[in-house]
Design a protein around this nucleic acid. Structure first.
Lengths: 352, 352
DNA sequence: CTGTTAGCGCTTTCAG
DNA sequence: CTGAAAGCGCTAACAG
């Protein structure tokens, strides 16, 4: 069994509709075929037609690997995400996807499963020519490769990552402001003891939200108490255990602000599990405004992040860079917005 | 500016850490390096170590394009989906993703945006060697390429698609049975006029659900009335308009069965919008059991599809085929299950 | 066990 | 406007 033969049973490419076949059948050189399929201007209209006809007739499909190996454009951009677990990232991807679809660019998606080494690896791999540009969603350790990426002028945009130092193309949301507003809203409702559950503290956005919370308290002359801040990791169980811990305090909070909606749901569970009611006994507020937050009971007051829009904007930015690499691009912050629903109210025994 | 130079500003690969560099520095031939990075047994332990060391030192990263072009394994499988819009597909992907992660296989995801031509195109493209196998989620027109795929023994598994004719590896759910059970449940509750909103009728699963509904009615000697069946397309608005149409009937139904949860939510909206209550006035039942369905108000009675498991099983199947191509694989049906929540009750004025 | 060699399918000069 | 030729980085025979 020859090598070719083995491949034949493994690979559709062995149907052998390559550029060479097309060239032969159209009676031109393979260089010409290449020009045609790449919309090169330097081809006689008549020749182009003939080649195109053969192309269709033979059902020719360009081989992406070969194309990118040879140094051409891939017309696809790579997206690297940690996982598809939460609706959170899904929303962003939708934005990316629909924007990309508009300009006929393809998308390949890689998931890192929160594995830092995979992240760097995929970046390196994709940047080798597999894609024309990279969108990094909520990257864990961009420091590892951003340097290389920039050095080589490889087009990329960070999504939802607070740049640590280096200025590079990125889009995020006003996390600080969102958290500030939410906290202030609670304060104005009359709450004085407000519990806070953080997100993964290795993420800039978590830090920003925590600071927003703190600033609001400070502004309103409410003492910051360490015992009211619980460190979570953006998972629903963190909300549950965090809320439980907070409610076990000798002097428990009257409101709990979770750094994302998923944790806020965990908080609500914990509250209910103790026979307390939301918002009558405990007000709960989240962050993100994922679709579910409007549908839970009671509907969750939360801070909306323009997730899909972030995906869209980042994509436009990347597409822009692809067109004019020289243009400088900085960080864009999209506004967050407080969405008041029914999980918050004035603290018990107090007028709204 | 030479070609090489242009690439240098475009491509990280120009850092030139190729197999050749490694070979040179390690004092071996490039063939040997290839063997090492492919875990070929025929390399002296000592040589392997040396090469590996250089590999790390230089930060070598294999070029996927070149590798697959040359005919090697890609160690990645391709997943083709229509979109990421609904949680539905996200759940399946999660199953795929986590299963793949277990075996260290990478995943590339392509979205077709319901474009049939794209679907066929991606399949052809990926099958050319970009991936070792293909997972086709809810494919629109598999007929277009399944033949080719099978002819060439290219490994693939269909997810959630009722095969029209050709026997090929696929995993799905017992849609007929699920719809039958749901309808029967409604009947046993005392409902006699049950409205039904279909999914996209070009999808096998929609047909199966409709038939399940019909069979249940037939079994219980309830006449099938065409006016009680509304054709939808799996979108929330279809549920809304469908329910509205149904409720406008001279003799409206007392229960509505929507072919998926998203439409069921639309149904609930429509019911409420007319001042009617769920389930007191109208019972509503869905299909899928997406995460949201447990959180809406009232919590939705629905038929659970083992979405994540379907992803898992399909992936195991594909991985199995990759290992032993000769093994025959047929269709696997995973069981659906009726989840009773609070959107259903006995019809008004009748004891449960 | 290791080196050599021939491509994979395509893009891109460089000549005409 | 078109053909010829040189690789892109790697794998897989084939000889040692």
């Amino acid at each position: 069994m020859s090598k070719r033969h083995v491949n034949a049973s493994k690979n559709i490419a062995s149907s052998k509709v390559t550029i060479v076949e097309v060239a032969k059948k159209a009676g031109v050189s393979l260089g010409t075929v290449s020009r045609v399929i790449n919309n090169d201007i330097h081809v006689a209209a008549e020749t182009r037609e003939r080649v195109l006809a053969v192309t269709r007739e033979l059902g020719y499909v360009a081989n992406r690997q070969a194309r990118s190996l040879a140094g051409g454009k891939t017309n696809t951009i790579g997206v690297i995400v940690r996982d598809l677990g939460t609706g959170y990232i899904g929303e962003i991807i939708r934005g990316i996807d629909s924007e990309l679809n508009l300009s006929g660019v393809d998308l390949v998606l890689y998931t890192t499963h929160r594995t830092v080494s995979k992240e760097a690896n995929y970046v390196a791999s994709l940047a080798q020519g597999m894609v024309d540009g990279l969108l990094l969603v909520l990257p864990r350790s961009p420091v590892d490769y951003i340097g290389t990426l920039m050095e080589h002028n490889f087009p990329f945009v960070l999504i939802d990552h607070q740049g640590t130092g280096t200025a590079c193309p990125a889009v995020g949301a006003t996390n600080w402001q969102g958290a500030y507003n939410a906290t202030e809203y609670l304060i104005k409702l009359g709450h004085q003891r407000i519990g806070f559950i953080t997100g993964s503290m290795d993420l800039g956005c978590s830090e920003d939200r925590l600071q927003g919370y703190r600033s609001a308290l400070r502004t309103h002359h409410i003492p910051l108490e360490a015992e009211l801040v619980y460190e979570g990791d953006f998972l629903q169980t963190d909300g549950y255990t965090g809320a439980s811990a907070l409610l076990d305090l000798p002097n428990p909070p009257t409101a709990i602000f979770a750094s994302n909606d998923v944790m806020a749901m965990g908080v609500m569970d914990a509250v209910r599990n103790r026979g307390l009611r939301v918002p009558n006994d405990i007000s709960v507020i989240g962050f993100d405004n994922i679709p579910q937050s409007a549908m839970v009971f009671p509907p969750l007051t939360t801070v909306q992040q323009p997730l899909e829009q972030m995906g869209r904007v980042a994509t436009q930015m990347l597409l822009g860079i692809l067109k004019k690499p020289e243009k400088e691009n900085g960080r864009i912050e999209l506004p967050t917005e407080l969405i008041v629903r029914n999980s918050t109210s004035a603290p018990k025994g107090r007028a709204g």
